[in-house]
């Protein structure tokens, strides 16, 4: 004879990062950035095998991502969050081939940004991982690049969740919210392109020995030296076409469908009632009826 009362407050953050998860995420983010930026950090060695050690990162990076994901799920995740994650991952996997190969048109990120914005940083991080993984299983194929794509898009989704919700006491909604997301989408498109280039750069151009390279990687050269060369490389090979294409796609999609999608996603947040707090209220009249035997 107890009536469960569900807390009426709307929880917009279905996957909360506790301090343990957040700390671990910080460690893995720093380590992951190091693995992306290995060409700039590698010390000077005469040994040609120095270039082969980064292959180990292709194995180590997914292990780190799995450890973070296991820690995030430590106390279990609301089934509604799991179901929404699954649906959004499937939609993202379906969107991805739409733009494949056409001048950098990349349709994966805008939904990731919007979902991260609505459901929070933890959800954005996980969605970045799962949608890239699902799309690899379904369409794009699993390869050595996948852990790096997963990590980078997980950061992208998390970053969208960390954008400010309010300025002072005013909620950022409507036109300003879309403007902020578009700015984030453009910046993140270029950053994504740059770091995806960075870890693969030495594999594609090869370490240059002896001569004076202008765009190739030189093992053990100074950080600024290699950074300058990498800047030229990424500017010439991808910034003009691929990254700009990605930035334009992000901006256009965020402007055109952003407001509607935000509304749809926020509606599902209200309907879902994540992590309900159930309180039991004792009904006095029924207690009395239990106490006294019925005639």
């Amino acid at each position: 004879m107890r009536s469960p009362l569900v807390n009426s407050q709307v929880d917009t953050n279905p996957i909360r990062l506790g301090w343990k998860s957040a700390g671990l995420l910080g460690v893995v983010t720093v380590a992951g950035l190091g693995m992306f930026a290995w060409p700039l950090l590698i010390p000077a060695t005469e040994d040609t095998s120095a270039i082969t050690t980064p292959f180990a990162f292709v194995v180590l990076l997914p292990v780190l991502v799995l450890l973070v994901l296991a820690q995030i799920a430590e106390r279990g995740i609301d089934a509604k969050a799991l179901a929404i994650l699954g649906v959004l991952s499937a939609v993202n996997a379906a969107l991805r081939p739409l733009g494949a190969g056409t001048g950098g048109v990349e349709t994966v990120f805008f939904l990731l940004i919007l979902a991260g914005r609505v459901f929070g940083p933890g959800f954005g991080f996980v969605l970045g991982c799962t949608s890239l993984f699902v799309s690899a299983l379904l369409t794009a194929g699993v390869g050595p690049w996948m852990p790096f794509q997963m990590m980078a898009s997980a950061w992208l989704g998390m970053g969208a969740g960390l954008l400010p919700q309010r300025v002072g006491s005013r909620l950022i909604r409507g036109r300003w919210e879309v403007a902020m997301l578009v700015a984030y989408g453009v910046v993140s498109a270029y950053l994504f392109g740059a770091i995806m280039n960075l870890w693969f750069w030495p594999f594609l151009t090869g370490p240059e020995m002896g001569s004076d390279p202008s765009l190739s990687y030189v093992p053990g050269a100074g950080l600024l030296d290699n950074l300058g060369r990498f800047g030229w490389y990424t500017l010439l090979t991808s910034t003009a076409v691929w990254d700009t294409g990605r930035a334009i796609t992000n901006a256009v999609l965020l402007v055109v469908v952003g407001p509607r999608l935000l509304a749809v996603l926020r509606r599902s947040v209200r309907r879902a009632r994540f992590n309900p707090v159930v309180e039991f209220e004792v009904d006095q009249t029924s207690l009395e009826s239990v106490g006294s035997p019925r005639p």
Binding site: G86, A90, V126, T130
Partner: peptide, 29 residues
């Protein structure tokens, strides 16, 4: 890949479930 998903360790059970939901929803889209 489906048998590999079934072999996901218990600590990653939730995320395995997400991937399975996504793979099931994909054709429904």
């Amino acid at each position: 890949p489906k048998r590999l998903l079934a072999a996901v360790p218990a600590a990653l059970y939730e995320w395995g479930t997400v991937v399975i939901i996504a793979l099931t929803v994909f054709p429904q889209l």
